[in-house]
Simulated scan of single mutants.
Amino acid sequence: MAHEDIPQPEMNFSTEGNQVGKVLMPRIGYTILAIIMAIFCTASLVLNISVIMVTIKYRQLRHPINYSLVNLAIADLGVTLLGSLLTVETNAVGYFNLGRVGCVIEGFAVAFFGIAALCTIAVIAVDRVFVVCKPMGTLTFTPRQALAGIAVSWIWSLIWNTPPLFGWGSYQLEGVQTSCAPDWYSTDPVNMSYIISFFSFCFAIPFLTILVSYGYLLWTLRQVAKLGVAEGGTTSKAEVQVSRMVLVMVMAFLICWLPYAAFAMMVVANPGMYIDPVIATVPMYLTKTSTVYNPIIYIFMNKQFQECIIPFLCCGRNPWAIDKSLPETTNTSSSNSRKGQVSPA
């Protein structure tokens, strides 16, 4: 029974490109997908809940620059609870068994929380430009500004994910028919206009914001490094660290989101083209794995969160502590001094 093929049951919300009753993937394939998603769900729950809990526990983390990191964890939790966990269940049974209402709920939830997380990543990039590069001079980054950026990410996501609920676009089964998303397949002009708008405003704009922000950040650090060398100092180490961090962030963004966006645009640009459902499923699941990559990259590369979350996860111990031999007074003073600092990471 482990290798038994499962024919897709007939559903009245199939998209144009779906062939009702056709076996899309062997039973073992669905089982593997369920196991993979269960692993990622578990990791996402542990990491993102830990981020929220340590922020509540440690006062020094409640700095405006960290608000967006916590918001990212909340958005990722939404994707995990209302999207990835449901995908584990539907893959476990081998087909989408939640009905039309379940499809709309899952499709909307994943898109809503996913785009909110994507916009939050763009907000984080802008936040770091303001904190590190100070384009507005000595203007202080305030809680109001941080909360405004968070509000924009949620409102922007809500604006572009509610139209399918009212007829402009729709949420339909995708890939191997065990999850739902905006309908990329329909050739209806109204639906295609929504997909193009969705791609432009929910992927292209955040992506360009990230590129411009981190490009400006790296350029500023380069200028500071040149000035430091001219004055006999050196900032090359800090520049290399931040450059590496920025490269990881942009690469992770591209790996998680670019395949999905490219797939959607290919389908829209060539409505008659056929893409194997198994191949089409890969980019869809890559976006869901971002709920694990996000806390690792954006939070574990933040020294403030590192010093709090690692002991939290390791029962009070930090096996990666830099120097455990420092006197207690030195540790205390350095800890106090860090409370007022915000690293660009």
Rank of each mutant, 00 (worst) to 15 (best):
R62A: 03
P283W: 01
A225P: 08
G29Y: 00
N302M: 03
P295R: 08
Q341Y: 11
D5K: 02
V123Q: 12
V23Y: 00
V212D: 07
T138G: 10
V242C: 08
C308I: 04
G29N: 01
V250C: 11
S243V: 01
A148V: 12
N302S: 14
T138F: 10
Y185R: 05
E16P: 02
S84D: 13
K57H: 08
G78A: 05
G169W: 07
V23F: 00
F96M: 02
Y216A: 13
I49C: 11
T140M: 09
G21L: 00
T234R: 08
F141Y: 15
M266C: 14
N318G: 07
N294A: 13
P344C: 03
V129P: 02
T291F: 04
R128M: 09
L47S: 07
F300P: 09
V229L: 09
S243A: 12
S14W: 05
V278N: 00
V88L: 01
G228N: 13
L72V: 15
S236P: 01
L313T: 02
I121W: 01
V70N: 09
M25R: 00
T80W: 03
P259A: 06
R27T: 05
G340A: 06
F305V: 11
L118I: 14
V46K: 06
Y95S: 01
P271Y: 13
P283S: 06
A321P: 01
I65Q: 14
S179L: 12
M273W: 15
G316R: 07
A38W: 01
F201E: 04
P344Y: 03
S186L: 08
F198A: 05
G94W: 00
E239Q: 10
I74T: 10
M25S: 01
F201H: 14
Q304V: 05
T235G: 08
T178M: 01
S213G: 07
C41Q: 05
T178Q: 01
